[in-house]
Design a protein around this nucleic acid. Sequence first.
DNA 1: ATTGGTTCCTGCTGGC
DNA 2: TGCCAGCAGGAACCAA
Length: 276
Amino acid sequence: MPELPEVETIGRGLARALEGRRIAAVTVRRADLRRPLPQGFAGRIKGRKVLSVRRRAKYLLIGLEGELTLLAHLGMSGRFRVLGPDEAAAPPERHDHVILATEDRTRVVFNDARRFGLMDLVKNGALESHPLLAELGPEPLGNEFSGPVLHERLKGRRTPVKVALLDQHVVAGVGNIYASEALFGAAIGPKRLARTIRAAEAERLAAAIAEVLRAAIASGGSTLRQYVQTTGEIGGFQHKFAVYDRAGEPCPRCAAPIRRLVQGGRSTYFCPRCQR
DNA sequence: ATTGGTTCCTGCTGGC
DNA sequence: TGCCAGCAGGAACCAA
């Protein structure tokens, strides 16, 4: 599942493939993603040069000539493939929905089996007020994120802290995997109500969030070749999780068995001994 | 203002 | 071995 580190890694790959290049052709094979592609999608992109590829939360922002930004979200199963000129003959694959071809015969292919992903076109002037972006919480790797900021945002919430971390309005970009990992890193129990998290704990949690995300980006970055993919698992380089998907295995800190529970319909993994 | 429930979709898993 | 029901999961949306 692409969370912030995966989206960051993918963005870097797309930057290498696209920045400074002109989009020569756009193929839409399926327009009905999570929401329909905007009217005139292909025509509005074609011929424009790509100026930048950035990330906000789990969104990719591909800046185009003419003050236009292509907004993309990968949902659950979205991925991008980059095909070089030597792969010009490669046929489309199942679930390839949008293909951007640059003038130097590179193709960037958006593939999304479950179609929870989306794309939109936004005029740069309207970017900050875009409904999908306007209410997002702070970037966990940015300067505006800190223990006190997180503490403030958890204050008053009666929902479990794990569930709160998944709310993109609290902190942007943390998904199900790194929520569990960060709580483990901060030694905070996932069932604790958000409003009971004290300042010192929020400080630890904010640091743990940044730490796990940074580590995941660092390991994801090393696997990036011509394939831009979602989980960083090429060549056995998969990032090692401390607790996620490890129910029954020993806690790496105290060896107690990792437990799984379901919160808000999502799996949570934690060490019942270390995390309080 | 917050929160719980529902929905979208398809690949995978487990039971028979 | 094959079939199929059930489940996972990001996040918008709605109702309370």
